[in-house]
Design a protein around this nucleic acid. Structure first.
Lengths: 399, 399
DNA sequence: CCTAATTTGTTCTAGGATGAACTTATTACC
DNA sequence: GGTAATAAGTTCATCCTAGAACAAATTAGG
């Protein structure tokens, strides 16, 4: 059996919890591991790992890594195993508001190609399928890869997806997309396994697999950008909610008498913690259009107005985190979105405000019961990498 | 093997997912079932159920029920199986603010004894152990039960419990309890398996096993009483959070400039949706101390002030639900606490307000994507019944 | 009244996972 | 340098579960 066909079989399986799949997942998440480490991580018996590895070795899915580690301590040295980069390629697609991004990666999630195509606003699902298909074809041709190696395509979608039927929520922002089953639409043209998931959930998966949340069971992802969004992971699983609308942190109401939000309610968190308004205001005062990255640079350079702007959104976001923590009490908050690139400039005031608005104060908690706040490990392409992760994790919700 | 020893073995097992345990759980949750129904519910194969049942029958854990059902349709009639009420007894304990409640039930969760003992406020853990031990002893003696049949004791605790070490959160209301490991303290004296869990989580477990949330994977429990609390169930599992402080809905901040709450923050939901303040105010105007039950009766009888009071807390609680739904988007909200006894008087305005404060409006959703709101199925003793449920579910977090 | 259809429940076998025992490879120490 | 200690990885008997075939008990219909 060829490596790619083996993973394709694994992807196709209903029950994604076979030892081989779990070994592949663990390797994908941790890079290089020994058989013993694999046993500890997956919770399977050494013997089970052993048999799984012989089969995976036989089909060239994994290889023995040459990484000779520093062996401190006695005992037989471990042979490290890694995924075989030649085992196949995964595609991650981000259907953004005004562009489509396509990442091609090998099974070790090393990025082979990362391209983006600007789209006109409110592009239709049909246009998205065509554009994506073209981008994927071009990427494979440019890097002389065979489409035969493509194991699957993960798609990150801006709006909520109903976890039961896989369709975009009727009430999601863009009417042309409402009710569309992304998986079906893309699968028809791409002719390979497709997994669609909410954009923020993809970001969370990227953090969970390779980022700031590796090994964590309970954390939230918070997007801070022009808009505010997020995702919730509890007990090691994504919380999608009943209609796929969990993690919509931007639309937490923090002021019932506040201004009207695009969602139809009043005083949503996004209106105060999203950068759309403040950035517009800043641009007007500055005399020219300013991007988020530029604001961060200005703040770093000592510009008081820029610093104040970041501090203000951090303050409100911290209030939001306090509210979220009262509901799910996460052990970790990973902050993503373009504003996360401000690092400490954002995190310091954010954490301070979060602590002020927390039910249980940091000082009253044991170290391991405190909620950590970290920046995303990825700069801007977390969601699309997460879409790649969907393929590797596969067997999640494939409805 | 005697039935009780068998369940005790099952309780002691690390992995609580053996077919026998799952059959017992399913029977506990559904009452009487046929082997085929058990296979469907547990997801196990018919053959597995068959072998599990022969073993459970041999040890008298289950019996064949005489309930001859209406057989519509062809085919061999099913023999219904139920748990054997003589298989053992379970104890549920509620450590309340001013009383301790003890329920003794058989494995079918039929209540044999339900007693309560008033305690002075701020009673110590030691006093609690002594009182509980006495109450249990008395209950067993009174009903001529042998303590040998006692399979385990579940304990519902008012404050958050750290899921990692099982200790009461340092920052929980009462200082005498902070840091205490309830499981250990009680186990030392009671000499049988003890499982401790947060009170609201117990209520949620009761709803999940036998109440309004049977078969649900994603729901929240909302306590409406003098105080506001709750619990979160996502992907079929309780969400305890990092420090056990998930589901603290009462301390969601809905007004940063609001009055000081006992938790140290400002403008918590509890200050507006809890009945403590409004009830005191009502009592003053009414000229005498009024209980929650009396307010409900008055409202039913047409008393406008009582009705207004319920509508007002319902309005704010609906706002809180909107916030919670933005975070976890539950498929169901079960409302408990003494105010839940007002049923439609509370639910109608609560649902209306919830819908008004929801990101996604009911009308925009397919029927199955809407969030239902229901009253608790238990009148006031849900938490203590849930503690009984802890014993039956056992194998959850026994840390 | 007999046969086909239907559904329940049991038996048997094959495939997987586990834990114990064993082999292999290295360090530590006398 | 040799032996003990330590840790990694493999092999094998055992146990568990799923799926298929089979046996059992009932209804529908000619």
């Amino acid at each position: 059996m060829t490596p790619s066909s083996q993973l394709q079989v694994m992807l196709a399986e209903e029950n994604g919890a076979t030892p081989s799949v779990r070994v592949v997942q663990a390797l994908s998440e941790h890079g290089a591991l020994s058989a013993t480490q694999l046993a500890r991580i997956t919770g399977l018996a050494k013997s089970t790992i052993s048999t799984a590895l012989t089969s995976l070795r036989a089909s060239a899915m994994v290889i023995e890594s040459s990484a000779a580690e520093k062996d401190r301590g006695a005992g037989r040295p471990a042979t490290t195993i890694t995924l075989n980069p030649a085992a196949g390629t995964c595609v991650g697609v981000l259907l953004g508001g005004e562009h489509i991004q396509v990442i091609v990666a090998d099974v070790t999630h090393a990025v082979i190609s990362d391209v983006a195509l600007p789209m006109k606003t409110d592009y239709s699902p049909q246009e998205a399928v065509t554009a994506t298909s073209r981008l994927i074809g071009e990427a494979y041709r440019e890097h002389r890869l065979s489409l035969q190696t493509m194991l699957g395509v993960g798609i990150a979608v801006a709006g909520p997806i109903n976890p039961r039927d896989g369709r975009v929520l009727r009430a999601s922002g863009v009417p042309t997309w409402s009710g569309v089953n992304i998986k079906h639409e893309f699968q028809r043209v791409l002719k390979c396994p497709v997994i669609a998931e909410n954009e923020s959930n993809c970001s969370a998966i990227a953090e969970l697999m390779w980022g700031a949340a590796v090994g964590r069971q309970d954390f939230i992802f918070l997007t801070m950008d022009l808009a505010i969004g997020g995702a919730v992971v509890a007990n090691g699983q994504l919380v999608s909610g009943n209609a796929g609308a969990a993690g919509e942190f931007g639309h937490i109401c923090i002021n019932p008498d506040g201004p009207l939000c695009r969602c139809g309610n009043h005083g949503c968190l996004e209106l105060y913690a999203g950068l759309k308004e403040p950035l517009g205001e800043f641009s007007r005062q500055f005399g020219q259009e300013v991007t988020i990255d530029e604001v961060i640079s200005l703040a770093r350079g000592g510009n008081l107005a820029a610093q104040t702007m970041i501090e203000q959104v951090a303050h409100v976001a911290g209030q939001g985190l306090g509210i979220i923590a009262s509901v799910v009490n996460p052990g970790l908050v990973v902050v993503g979105g373009r504003l996360a690139l401000a690092r400490e400039l954002l995190l310091a005031p954010l954490e301070a405000s979060f602590n002020r608005h927390s039910l249980v104060k940091r000082s009253e908690l044991d170290a391991d019961a405190r909620t950590q706040v970290l920046s995303s490990a990825f700069s801007g392409r977390g969601a699309c990498l997460g879409a790649v992760g969907l393929v590797l994790r596969a067997g999640g919700r494939t409805g």
